[in-house]
């Protein structure tokens, strides 16, 4: 029983990490007042870019870099539309969803379904990995998981303890007051959108370079959307996002494993679990029957126009 539980926990962590990059990125973006509905598509672009690079160069570092560059470029484009041209963020997000899903399928067609020679391998951390149970769950993982161990505390520290994080929180609440203080609101939003998109593409790379080692059209299968709903679920706090991601990871992995133990139920119903769980989590955390002070950034989804001040 214990090996079963540890393997489930370890797999849940891998699953959680693959959506956490995107979720934490989106937390930063939404804290800056920009909602990016296109996560799912951008994640696909990341997965495709990473895989195509690895396929041609067999170099994981190049793959990671190219993934990040694609994320930054997509972020730049999204920022240009939503910040400079002040387009509607929801519509823009949907456009990116469709554009990126299509483009990733189009550019990745030639390598669809082929396994790459290299992928991110499990690295056992010396000493720590030999702790029974805990070592197996937390320290026999790959690069993306260890990087996430750094990203989580850093992002929490950044948001709550630094001047820049304070400005970020203010940006999503009241951009006009920052502008009055002479801070370049537009540049800040550009920065955070680009950061968020880069994080989202890293999530994609997790899926095509670590979770699996192939590329398939639409392979993220709604993980981007789960990451997106995780943001509201976490109330814009990376710490809660971690908990939520582990929860979703656990449910999905359990679902996959239950198939083996309870074969009577068709696999499609297990496949529905994470989506149903997302809806339920969304109802529980954001339903208006909760009489709590909403923590949603007040300026979320609103374009900022100096003349309207």
């Amino acid at each position: 029983m214990i090996p079963f539980i540890t393997s489930i926990c370890a797999a849940a962590i891998v699953y959680a990490v693959s959506i956490l990059y995107a979720a934490i990125g989106e937390i930063f973006s939404q804290r800056a007042g920009i909602m990016n509905l296109g996560i799912e598509g951008i994640m696909l672009m990341g997965a495709m870019t990473g895989f195509v690079t690895v396929y041609h160069t067999e170099n994981l570092l190049f793959a990671l870099l190219s993934t990040i560059i694609v994320g930054l470029v997509l972020g730049l484009a999204f920022a240009f539309l939503t910040v400079t041209l002040q387009a509607d963020q929801t519509v823009c997000g949907m456009a990116f969803l469709i554009f990126c899903s299509g483009l990733s399928g189009f550019l990745g067609k030639s390598v669809t379904g082929i396994a790459s020679a290299v992928k991110f391998q499990q690295i056992d951390i010396p000493v720590l990995s030999s702790i029974p149970v805990i070592g197996e769950i937390f320290f026999q993982q790959d690069f993306f998981v260890y990087l996430m161990y750094l990203v989580i505390p850093l992002s929490i520290f950044y948001i709550y303890k630094t001047k820049a994080g304070l400005m970020l929180r203010a940006l999503g609440e009241n951009p006009a007051s920052l502008d009055q203080a002479g801070i370049n609101v537009f540049a800040m939003r550009y920065g955070y959108i680009m950061f968020a998109c880069a994080m989202t593409t890293i999530s994609g790379a997790c899926i095509s370079l670590s979770y699996t080692n192939f590329w398939n059209e639409g392979m993220t299968g709604g993980k981007g959307w789960i990451a997106f709903s995780l943001v509201a679920f976490s109330r814009w706090n990376p710490a809660y996002a971690v908990l939520g991601a582990l929860l979703f990871g656990g449910i999905s992995i359990l679902g996959m494993n239950m198939q083996v133990y309870l074969p009577g139920i068709p696999s499609q119903f297990y496949g529905m679990l994470p989506y149903a769980a997302t809806i339920i989590a969304l109802i529980i955390t954001t339903g208006s029957f909760r009489k709590k002070h909403s923590e949603e950034p007040a300026a979320l989804c609103q374009k900022y126009d100096r003349e309207d001040r």
Binding site: L166, M167, A170, E173, N174, L178, A181, A298
Partner: peptide
């Protein structure tokens, strides 16, 4: 007022400092 309601007084003042 150009204050941010969800932040504390001290945090609001931090924000205005260059």
């Amino acid at each position: 007022f150009a204050l941010i309601p969800t932040l504390t007084v001290a945090e609001n003042i931090f924000l205005s400092l260059d």
